[in-house]
């Protein structure tokens, strides 16, 4: 597979380490009302679709950026690659 790194261009999958579903960006609030439940869902439950999947990849052997890759789990086609920090900010994460 080839991941088109937003800064560095197309790179072989071997340069990357995979983490999983990009929902891992949405870490719950530790002081929220049902924090334990939310953390349980955050850590353990997955949609695991046969189709479009947004997922986190780390450019371990490159610039060490985390990427959000939109990839089809059936065809392995990659339709979008973004810097995870940009995605995280867009999703309201800050400090």
């Amino acid at each position: 597979m080839i991941i088109n790194h937003p800064l560095m261009g197309p790179r072989d999958r071997q340069e990357f380490t995979y983490l999983g579903d990009a929902c891992l960006i949405d870490r719950p609030d530790w002081q929220g009302g049902n924090a334990m439940d939310q953390f349980f869902e955050y850590v353990y439950l997955r949609d695991d679709p046969a189709g479009t999947h947004r997922e986190l990849w780390y450019h371990e052997h490159g610039d060490r950026s985390w990427l959000v890759v939109t990839r089809n789990t059936v065809t392995h086609e990659i339709t979008n690659v973004e810097l995870a920090s940009d995605v995280a900010r867009k999703q309201g994460r800050s400090k």
Partner: peptide
Amino acid sequence: TSRVMDMAGIRTPIES
């Protein structure tokens, strides 16, 4: 597993 359980509306701690 995940897709079939999804038809029943159940999310599982399982990935393919």
